[in-house]
Amino acid sequence: MNGTVDLAERVRAYAEFFATLTPQSLDRLDELFTHRARFKDPFNDVSGVPAIRAVFEHMYRVCPAPRFEVREWALSGQTAFIRWRFTDGPTVGRRMALDVDGMSRVVFDEAGRVLEHVDYWDPAAALYERIPMFGALLRALRRKLSAE
């Protein structure tokens, strides 16, 4: 391609990386991210590959079987939008399984490496509403603020 990067192919490969993510594949983060890349989600805002790796290592420690299902993606300039579903295994005992729909905005540099990855998802619906008293309060608040 005369030295140019096929960004659509890079986005496809990046989405596939998350769809097949394992603890072993974290070794590939250096290939995918720039050394000062930023990763942000509702609980983390970190920069640099070692910090990004730490976020995913933590995920593997607290989630028994994390899985990302990439539903679709779109590309606009150097920015990709990836819609996904995250699950972390079956409900076991008192531990309720997570089932989260979300979207990532991923900005690529000219070489096709990730400069910034920002996840957007609703932690209240995914986590907080599962806490007995807090969840009841959030559900009541949602009903009160709903237009329906």
Rank of each mutant, 00 (worst) to 15 (best):
P132V: 00
P23K: 07
E31C: 04
E9L: 14
Q78P: 03
Y120G: 08
V70Q: 10
T20L: 09
L29S: 03
F56C: 09
K40M: 13
P90M: 08
F18D: 09
A125H: 15
R142V: 06
L29H: 11
A15C: 12
T4P: 12
R12T: 10
R53N: 06
L21F: 13
R113I: 12
V114Y: 06
P42Y: 12
L137P: 03
S146V: 10
R28M: 01
S146I: 05
W121T: 10
A19D: 14
T91F: 00
F18W: 05
D99F: 02
A51K: 05
E9N: 10
E129F: 12
T4S: 14
G89K: 07
L137H: 01
E9K: 12
P90R: 06
D41K: 03
F108N: 07
R139G: 05
F86Y: 15
D41V: 05
F56E: 06
F81I: 02
S146Q: 10
R95S: 01
V49E: 03
D119I: 13
Q78I: 02
T22A: 08
G102R: 05
F81N: 03
H58Q: 14
A15H: 07
L21K: 14
L21D: 09
E69Y: 06
R61N: 13
M1P: 13
R105D: 05
M96F: 03
E129P: 02
D101C: 09
F134C: 06
G93S: 10
M96S: 09
P66R: 09
Q24M: 14
L141V: 14
L32F: 00
V70Y: 03
S25R: 15
A147L: 15
P66N: 03
